[in-house]
Nucleic acid binder design. Structure first.
Lengths: 183, 183
DNA sequence: TTCTTTTCCTAACATAGGTTAACGGTACTT
DNA sequence: AAGTACCGTTAACCTATGTTAGGAAAAGAA
């Protein structure tokens, strides 16, 4: 069984954690994503910007989460996404060299990595399924249940963007929900 | 470098390929997904059914594709999805025991598997991003470009279901597109 | 062939969600 | 304290998509 603290300690033995002020970009479209970020403190988001200039949040990463553009990192393609800190944060920036070396010294980490990949797939598949089958209101309720902790830390417009809604629409959803509860 | 033929041959040395008539269910909600299917011939779909009874296609798998509920297979959860043949098909049904054994004899396969997982993530992430940022028409055009081969093999209602549309809406999208082309 | 089922299209209507614009509140700046 | 930027709400209106219903063509079954 692998403990994440082993990774953190191995990293901190050689490097110091990266301090990131809020609103700082850690990755932009066109760049290669050459680090997997592990969030020690703070909150990071992973998002795209479409041709009309609208932002779409694919993922939030609070403490204890990994955040990376796996396509860019693994296939060595330039990224189409942004990674940005939403709060003052503290992250480990794991590059390929470090990860390879760490795998060699910690063979349990290989299996742990496998779990991370499968979690990622589970999460994404669940999102696709929700986007295909649930209404805005249902998606919002699910989000609140799954990430109650995130709701209070990011502006509502970003939650709307995660849910595939205009901010005004999320406002409407919330109003309808509070009316229902009053009854 | 790993060649898929090695996997196929190893499987066929011990088992014969599974012949599947069209419209046969290979997995249903509530069951454990204990096989990864590799499609030799035919066409398979992976879909869910929501509370209103509407189907939502998450993936099509023609020849040369793998299809599996990774969450169910890896985490040993019961599945929420269906896997169904759309055409008379021929598949390899790879169970965990076979895959484990095969990994031991073919160490390159471990890396190949890693590629498969990352491809899966890339594919799903791209879908989430498209569902968040593109119109029905744009999603349809992308689908045609990406899977021209599938378009002609499945009923339009299933493509609509993959795109997150009602069949009638896809019909409308197609009519608008053909009008545009005429001009 | 004839009958049946499936598939696709169309049109009229209904609705969820997007758009625009305005307002009030809060928090940060100066 | 005044000024400014950001945020969430609301309302009126608009548009894309869903819904219902019907019908015609194509594909399969008897």
């Amino acid at each position: 069984m692998f403990e994440i603290t082993a990774l953190i300690e191995a990293y901190l033995a050689k490097n110091s954690a990266r301090q990131v002020p809020a609103k700082k970009l850690l990755l932009s479209p066109g760049e290669y994503c050459d680090h997997t970020f592990y969030v020690l403190k703070g909150l990071i988001r992973y998002f795209s910007v479409d041709t009309k200039g609208n932002e779409h949040v694919l993922q939030f990463a609070p403490e204890g989460w990994f955040i990376v553009d796996r396509e860019s990192m693994f296939f060595k393609n330039t990224s189409n996404f942004f990674i940005e800190s939403l709060e003052d944060s503290e992250v480990l920036a794991l590059n390929e060299e470090f990860l390879k070396g760490f795998c060699q010294n910690h063979t349990e980490f290989v299996e742990f990595n496998n779990i991370l990949l499968h979690n990622h797939i589970r999460h994404l598949q669940n999102r696709v399924n929700e986007l295909l089958s649930l209404s805005a209101e249902e998606r919002y309720l699910n989000f609140m249940k799954l990430y109650p902790n995130i709701i209070s830390r990011v502006p509502q417009s970003m939650i709307a963007s995660y849910l595939g809604l205009a901010p005004e629409s999320l406002s409407r959803v919330r109003r309808n929900l509070s009316r229902k509860k009053l009854k």
